[in-house]
Amino acid sequence: MSPSREAAEQLWRRYNTDEGLWRHALAVEAAMRHFAEKAGEDPDVWGIIGLVHDIDYQQYPDQHCSMAKQILQEAGWPEAFIRAVVSHGWGICSDVEPRSALEKTLFAVDELTGFIQACALVRPSKSVQDLEVSSVKKKWKTAAFAAGVNRQVIEKGAAMLGMELDSLIGETILALRKVLP
């Protein structure tokens, strides 16, 4: 049985207090819900996995994904949910390769949501509401901009999904418009 959104948030807050991480969790949740709806999948399941994907990051950054697995197992979460969370760190802090559409989507949008938010913050409006793909692509080419975002992971995620990068960016912007100013 799937944990509720409320239970997922309570568990997340047990391990995290950082509001920046919370905003990231909400952004990834929104992206996952959006892509689930497009794929005809359960947006609640995909959203909850997006919400908790970095549950261990604040307290255990050096054990990211492995501690998430432990936390979610101890909380009695379904194995498929745990696998999805762990797979988002594939090639970085996990050897669990994303296989399902859900896992590939999480892998692709995790870093991308942060990049899009960074792009929005340097706009006069500071908003995703008027952000266009072309603006994101312009910043994409500037290595010093949001230098901590691994663009190769995003490109690999788009390829795994069989999506053009521009399409992945555009759909993620649409998702974030639902939850961000």
Rank of each mutant, 00 (worst) to 15 (best):
M160S: 10
G162R: 15
R177G: 00
G50W: 14
E41M: 13
R14K: 15
Q152M: 08
D110Q: 07
A101W: 07
I92C: 09
V128K: 14
S2V: 10
K138M: 02
Q70N: 05
C119S: 04
L161Q: 00
P43S: 15
R23N: 08
H24Q: 01
V45Q: 10
Q117I: 12
R5A: 00
D95C: 09
E9M: 12
L51W: 00
I55P: 13
K156T: 14
H53I: 03
A75L: 04
V179I: 08
E41I: 04
L106E: 02
E132G: 13
S125E: 01
V133G: 10
L11R: 13
K139N: 07
A31L: 02
R99D: 01
D44H: 14
N16D: 12
V149S: 08
L180E: 05
A120I: 10
Q117W: 11
A68Q: 06
C65T: 10
K104N: 12
W90R: 10
Q73A: 10
A27R: 08
C119E: 00
E97F: 01
A84C: 07
E132N: 03
D54V: 07
C93N: 15
S2R: 14
D62Q: 06
D130S: 13
L26E: 04
T142Y: 10
V149F: 08
A159W: 13
S125P: 08
V109L: 02
D42A: 06
K178S: 06
H34L: 00
R123S: 05
G47Q: 05
V52P: 00
I116A: 11
R5M: 05
D42C: 05
R151W: 14
F107L: 11
R177Q: 06
E97H: 07
E155N: 04
W12F: 15
P78R: 15
L102C: 15
V149P: 05
P3L: 07
E74C: 04
E6D: 03
I173M: 08
C65E: 12
P3E: 03
T172R: 01
D56R: 09
H34N: 05
S125A: 03
L176M: 15
T113K: 04
W140Y: 14
L121A: 12
I173G: 01
Q129L: 14
E97Q: 09
Q129E: 10
V153I: 14
S4F: 00
S94K: 11
R177K: 14
R33W: 04
F107M: 07
A8D: 00
M1C: 08
E9L: 15
W22C: 01
L51Y: 03
G40P: 06
A27G: 07
V52S: 08
V153H: 11
K139L: 10
G47N: 10
R5S: 02
G76D: 06
M67W: 00
W46M: 03
F145C: 05
